[in-house]
Design a protein around this nucleic acid. Structure first.
Lengths: 255, 255
DNA sequence: CAAATCAGGGTTGTATGATAACACTACAAG
DNA sequence: CTTGTAGTGTTATCATACAACCCTGATTTG
């Protein structure tokens, strides 16, 4: 039986509902930056909950930087220029423009990460990548194990950059992209695709092992271009120029 | 009992202190994924606050995806593999390693953004950059107006990339960096610095206006290298190679 | 004996009321 | 006009109580 669990588990907490309700008011412009929110008491009665619940919702919105509050004055909608957390709305990712943008951003980070990884990788980094690639070979294309190994490989690359935030950002973006792809539901694949994908990963690994930054950059660029095509983003333009120089080197490093 | 208040009183709310305290426990590994947190009552007594405050802190951490809780069972540290929001801890940014990493990440994005902006900018983008640069010239170095204009310029560049997430990520990172710099408190500057900084911005603008992607990349790289030096990060290594090729072109586009 | 049922304690979720700290306004005193 | 002060409204915090739920173990039932 095909279980279709609700993508967004509507929070069983009242505070979550209140928070997203207020959040929606802000997003849709009914509450503009600088506006004062109703008092906690008023919100409690209009939502039909206790003031305590309202406070938890407010605390959450405050931590997200959407509002700020001061004792004795009230709560106000914050300027949207300085969010303290970064979120990516799931719904807006359904639009292909947004998806393409996020994919492009991922590419920028991954390509540069590959280059840095080639320059800074240690032997244990190489081992992690090799292991992930091996696991990927043994798993059927598109399976859970396959996706896990794929993610593991890219995580190993980001780890080799010796930049903690690089990994944090890349996995965050990759996760959002993966969710969007799963939601779209085009998950059919062939053995050809598996072979090609593995080959691309091998090129990346070879370049990183050879400490060839240009080749690593090119190989990763190739991989992402291929991945974009496989996902249906055929019009994604490559960040100009860089791949050309390194393509030959990538081929050489491959074996 | 031993609630050590930090020198910078971040967030006058008790719930904020409790939240970051728990957050630190998780970050430093004393609470591992899957572990159960103490009960709300226990946390309340150990922190010396009411259970209400603890609940607001928990609500916040839950919204950040750091923990999850179930009625009747307890609260548990979440698996950090799939965060739903991206946060950057203020305290950990005080360590120079983390700061350097974040600065490097910013550089990767900004350099590529400059290149994309050069390829995709419209006339109104150029106008926005010009206006920001003009405002920067009129403001004293290091003043609030100056910082605002600086941010405005970079925001205009990111906007010219036609990639919504690019701007979102860049301003997010830039804000965190700005906060860390302000907290460090080295805010002395000379007229020389103002002149140099403005000159760097002019180079970027000229390259983008000329639609010269390589020059834009190089100019932005120069700017970031300079900014790193001004902030005390002299050992920041440039992402290899790219700046060399474009430097000449940047000089040519400058005037 | 095995399985279902039920009782009890423990934990989170929500409600309610009260008090303290703070901001703003208006008005009186000098 | 300036200053002090009382008053009102709001947020911040505390304290307590109850409801909903999970888990465990004993009890009952087949």
């Amino acid at each position: 039986m095909n279980l279709k669990l609700d993508k967004v588990n509507r929070g069983p907490h009242l505070s979550t509902l209140v928070a997203s309700s207020i959040s929606r008011e802000i997003a849709q412009g009914r509450l503009k930056p600088g506006d004062q929110l109703p008092t906690e008491q008023a919100l409690a009665t209009t939502f039909g909950v206790s003031r305590n619940v309202v406070r938890e919702a407010i605390a959450r919105l405050r931590s997200e930087g959407r509002i700020w509050s001061q004792q004795g004055r009230g709560a106000f909608v914050a300027d949207d220029s300085n969010p303290t957390v970064l979120t990516i709305d799931f719904e807006s990712l359904q639009q292909s423009d947004s998806f393409r943008s996020l994919f492009e951003l991922r590419g920028i980070l991954e390509v540069q990460a590959a280059s840095l990884a080639a320059a800074r990788r240690t032997d244990s980094d190489l081992k992690a990548m090799t292991d992930a690639l091996k696991a990927m070979r043994d798993a059927p294309y598109g399976s859970v194990a396959w996706l896990k190994s794929d993610l593991e490989f890219h995580r190993a690359v980001s780890k080799a950059t010796r930049n903690a935030y690089m990994g944090q950002f890349m996995t965050f973006i990759a996760e959002r992209i993966r969710e969007a792809i799963l939601a779209a539901g085009n998950r059919q694949g062939s053995d050809d695709m598996a072979r090609i994908t593995i080959g691309e990963h091998e090129s990346i690994l070879a370049a990183i092992r050879a400490s060839d930054t240009a080749a690593a950059r090119a190989a990763m660029q190739d991989h992402l271009t291929g991945a974009a095509k496989r996902v249906g983003l055929d019009t994604l333009e490559a960040p100009e120029g860089k791949a050309k120089a390194g393509r030959k080197a990538a081929g050489a490093a491959k074996r």
